[in-house]
Amino acid sequence: MNTEINNKISQMLDDELHYSEQESVLLKMRQHSELNNKMSRYQAVSHVFKTDDFILVKDDFLDNIKQELKQDPHYFLPQQTVKKRSISRWQKTSAAVAASFAIVAVMVSQQTDLQSTESQQNTLFVAQKQPVETLPHAVNDAQHERFKAYLQAHSNDLYTHGSLSYQPYVRVATYGQE
């Protein structure tokens, strides 16, 4: 019986035990604490075999965490009570004036947006380009020039690639594409 349950624990750790049997093994482990400890030992041995390093964890490590969680204090925040207020005529008038101001503000801002679209696009374009700069300019340019010279000598591709004359190669380079 012992050998059988030991085998099953080992199989469960290697993910080789069928789901239906896992449930019965877990039930037995709950009933017999020594089986629980056995599984911890098997797990440690398996970990050492697989990774060549081992961190010793105390037996009561999980229990300590449970205890800490139990002792964690609970905070009860008071519920906020909302008093009903009567809405006066003065308040209604101010709300209407505020709404009118809001509509005018939206219309003005839309016009301003249209006028500033071009400058915003320029800003975005610059902003997108910045993070790609990973190497000093001189190095980038030298690599770019070398790549251009190589491509120019290799084929006519350079002349049909409109973008190459403007972007250093490192900006458009990717890896691993087949």
């Binding site: 190095v139 030298a142 790549f147 380079a173 990717t174």
Partner: peptide, 26 residues
């Protein structure tokens, strides 16, 4: 398909390994 092989004196700024630009790999 064609492949070019270039040989030149070593530079300090050479980018080693694989690089890609569209269908062109180096």
């Amino acid at each position: 398909s064609s492949v070019s092989v270039y040989r030149e004196a070593k530079a300090d700024d050479i980018q080693l390994g694989l690089q890609t630009l569209g269908s062109v790999n180096s």
